[in-house]
Design a protein around this nucleic acid. Structure first.
Lengths: 136, 136
DNA sequence: ATAGCTGCAAATGCTTTGCAAGGCC
DNA sequence: GGCCTTGCAAAGCATTTGCAGCTAT
C-alpha cells in the first residue's frame, strides 16, 4: 500500500489535522477497511498484531482518542469495563445484546424521537445516544 | 430510627428478598431519603461516613448492585470512569452535562420514541436508555 | 444453626501518564 | 531542526474478589 496523494486514509488524517504517521495510518486502515464496526482498544490492538502492524497498546488508545476527537470515530459507553469505538459517525442508535456484549446499529430513521427537550439555557446538545438493551 | 414492622425501608428490602442488615438499611435510608438522585459508589460511601454510618466501600458496591438487581436502583453508564446509580427506576431519560458531569432527569412524556424497532428474534428489550449529552 | 453479609486487603483490568527516543514536515 | 508521536513500563482508579468473622432469621 502506497501513501501517494491518492491514498484516502492518508489524506483523511491530514485533512482533520492528524499527522499521518505509520501507526495511525495502519490503525486507520484496519478500522475503516471493513465498513461499520464496533471495536474496543484491545480488539484493535489484537488485530494490529495479527496484521504484523507493530504498535503499542498506548498508541492504540492515543489513536482511538485522536480519531474520536477529530470526528472520525464515535465512542460508546455501555458498561464500566470498556468502551467501544464506532466507525459509523452518522446519526444512528444501538442495540446492545447484554449477554453476548454484541452491538448492532439501528438506522436513525428506524426511530423517531419526538419532543426532544431543548438543552437548558446556554447549553447545546452534543449528541443523543439511544441504547436499546436486549437479552440474547 | 427503629426497625419496626412499620419501617418502610426495612420492609422494602425484605420484600425484594434482601436481608435488611444494618448496613443495607442505613445505605438505603441515605439513598431514598431525598427523592430522585444520581449517586456514585464513592458519593454514597462519603455520605455514609458523614452520617456516622460505618460501612466499607466494598459493602457499598455490594449494596448498590444488590439494590439494582432487585429493581430498587438503575445503573447508568456515561463514561469509562464510573457508573451512576439512579433512585428513579421509572421510565425516564437523562441530560448529561459533559463538562460538569451533572445528570438530570427528563420525564418520559417529554420525549416520544416512535417506531422503536422490536428486538431481534427471541430477544426481549431490557430497557431503553436515552442520553442527551450537552455542553455546559 | 446456618445461610447470607460484611470488612479488609489484595487483586483485577481498563486506561492514562511520564519520559526518552524516533519520525514527519 | 522542531515539534508531534511512539513505546514501554509504571502508575492510576474504579470495581471486584477471597475469605475469616459476623448476624439476621
Amino acid at each position: 500500500m502506497r501513501t501517494s496523494s491518492r491514498d484516502i486514509i492518508f489524506e483523511r488524517l491530514r485533512q482533520v489535522g492528524l499527522r499521518p504517521t505509520r501507526q495511525r495510518v495502519s490503525l486507520a486502515r484496519i478500522m475503516f477497511a471493513q465498513g461499520d464496526r464496533h471495536v474496543t482498544a484491545e480488539d484493535l490492538f489484537t488485530e494490529a498484531k495479527g496484521a504484523r502492524v507493530n504498535v503499542s497498546l498506548a498508541t492504540v488508545y492515543n489513536a482511538l482518542h485522536d480519531f474520536t476527537a477529530k470526528g472520525l470515530l464515535r465512542e460508546i459507553f455501555l458498561d464500566t469495563n470498556r468502551s467501544y469505538f464506532d466507525t459509523n459517525t452518522g446519526d444512528h442508535h444501538h442495540f446492545y445484546f447484554e449477554r453476548s456484549g454484541r452491538l448492532e446499529d439501528i438506522p436513525t430513521d428506524a426511530i423517531r424521537i419526538a419532543g426532544l427537550p431543548s438543552a437548558p439555557e446556554g447549553a447545546t446538545i452534543t449528541r443523543v445516544d439511544v441504547i436499546i438493551r436486549v437479552n440474547d
